[in-house]
């Protein structure tokens, strides 16, 4: 599963694959990921999620009534996810009070600039891109043996998460915009860069 049948995905071409497949993910599922890369990804993904929270809040403020349920549900889930990240950071003695990696920064600067300057349908396409690519990336993974990362794979392959992504996809279809594809594609480029940064440092 997990490749949403959506016009934005179909029209993204090879960018979709670049955003959803990476040696980092393969190594994670195989249990062979080096610890440094995992810790880097965890900390930077947490910093990303903090800004994504602000992005989603601004989108919610701009969104029409039919978007509220999904967007509010998404915000509540993200708030729980922050707790979850923080508890892992404590367990791993990982400092989250660090500067963002330039790659993470470029991604969140893009999100925040768009949050204020782009119309709500474009923001929906952006959020759909962020979440759909994450769902596809994680749910394609099959842990080989007892993988310490099984919990992570389950989180972003769950039926709840898939239903949320499907709802965002429907909203993005119901609220089209001529600039949606361009911004969706830019999300995918940033996603690919983020995996590369997690892998290579």
């Amino acid at each position: 599963m997990a490749i949403p049948d959506h016009v934005l995905v179909r029209n993204a071409g090879s960018l979709w694959d670049q955003a959803t497949h990476h040696p980092f993910l393969d190594a994670l599922a195989a249990g062979s990921l080096v610890e440094d890369a995992f810790r880097r990804w965890l900390a930077q993904d947490y910093l990303f999620a903090k800004d994504l929270m602000a992005f989603q809040a601004i989108l919610l403020a701009k969104a029409p009534r039919d978007c509220h349920k999904s967007l509010i549900g998404g915000l509540a889930a993200l708030e729980k996810e922050m707790d979850w990240f923080e508890s892992h950071a404590v367990r791993l003695q990982l400092n989250l009070d660090i500067p963002p990696h330039p790659t993470c920064r470029r991604y969140t600067d893009f999100l925040m600039r768009c949050a204020y300057t782009q119309p709500q349908p474009v923001l929906l396409a952006i959020l759909f891109g962020v979440e759909a690519s994450y769902l596809a990336a994680w749910s394609a993974l099959v842990p080989s043996g007892p993988c310490p990362c099984a919990e992570f794979i389950e989180r972003w392959s769950s039926a709840d998460f898939a239903a949320y992504v499907a709802a965002l996809g429907e909203l993005a279809e119901r609220h089209p915009h001529e600039a949606a594809q361009e911004h969706f594609n830019e999300v995918l480029t940033h996603e690919g860069e983020f995996w590369k940064m997690s892998w290579e440092g």
Binding site: A54, R105, R106, T108, D109, F110, M112, R113, A115, Y116, T117
Partner: peptide, 17 residues
């Protein structure tokens, strides 16, 4: 180009947010 986009995004994020 990517460098110009990154600078623009940073500046406008800062100014708005």
């Amino acid at each position: 180009n990517p460098a110009c986009r990154a600078y623009r995004d940073f500046l406008l994020r800062t100014a708005w947010h």
